[in-house]
Design a protein around this nucleic acid. Structure first.
Lengths: 144, 144
DNA sequence: CACAATTCAATTGTGCACAACTTATTCACG
DNA sequence: CGTGAATAAGTTGTGCACAATTGAATTGTG
């Protein structure tokens, strides 16, 4: 019996639980903005730079068109983004922010602080966690 | 523009990406076993101790009956578990392993090693990551 | 230039996550 | 003891994640 892998010993489960807990902390704040967590991630990418094709968004976030297409349709329904076929390459769909989408950025300043407040970790621990997760994700993705 | 939170700086996104990458590493192995990752988590709990009520499984995994009820129905369909109303408390449903469910444990020995191999982190780094994630999850969950 | 291979986005289908609600059972307290 | 509160599991509905497929546009190569 003790030769079976145990739940509490699995780093994988620790990641899964931490990720769920983090999005749960964000949820009430994002609810006020009318966004889900993945929608917020897409908006973050667009606030940094736009227009972005569906493919570029997917590369940044690690999501495919099967996830992004309906998500972007919902963001468009909310009036936050617009989608239009690229003129140069008609395969591409460029996603741009509307005025409302751009304006929403100002209301999200407090969002990351929420996690930091609830984390119960020192700035140094956060920093190290962030660095280790980055190394881990890169190594895991390159092993596929 | 630079006052907007940026994707790469968000620990939340690092957790989200790492968790997805970890389950992606597990996926081909679990596919061979005919399990999804959440189904594997449920089996891990049952291999440690059974029977378990739906509520107990949910408490271990942080999942509610809305997620577990259909998942357990699928595990039952695979012939790995059985569900029966508890005799003492007819509100409860006890989940027990079938012989096939118990036997499956032997085939999962190599699963966690897969992640360790692909992680590219030292044992010490893994250990520290695990500890930090545990602290973080506990703090986040208690802040809700 | 023709046309096969590739790329991009969308769609379909399965399964997970979670909120809200329903129903059945048990518990608590008056 | 009886009834209202609490608890357990299930269902419904929405949205995300991902595999597989489709169809349109582009690219590369002969």
């Amino acid at each position: 019996m003790s030769d079976a892998p145990r739940l509490r010993h699995q780093v994988c489960f620790a990641l899964y639980s931490a990720s769920k807990a983090a999005t749960a902390v964000y949820r009430p704040v994002l609810d006020d903005l009318g966004l889900t967590y993945p929608q917020y991630l897409v908006m973050l990418v667009l606030w940094e730079q736009e227009p972005r094709s569906v493919r570029e968004l997917g590369a940044e976030l690690g999501l495919d068109s099967g996830t992004l297409s309906p998500l972007l349709k919902r963001l468009e329904g909310l009036g936050l983004v617009e989608r239009k076929r690229s003129a140069e390459d008609e395969r591409r769909v460029d996603v741009v922010l509307t005025d409302a989408g751009t304006a929403l950025s100002a209301k999200t300043q407090a969002v990351p602080q929420r996690l930091a407040d609830a984390a119960g970790l020192s700035a140094a621990e956060i920093e190290q966690l962030h660095a280790t997760l980055g190394k881990l994700t890169a190594a895991l993705n390159s092993s596929l």
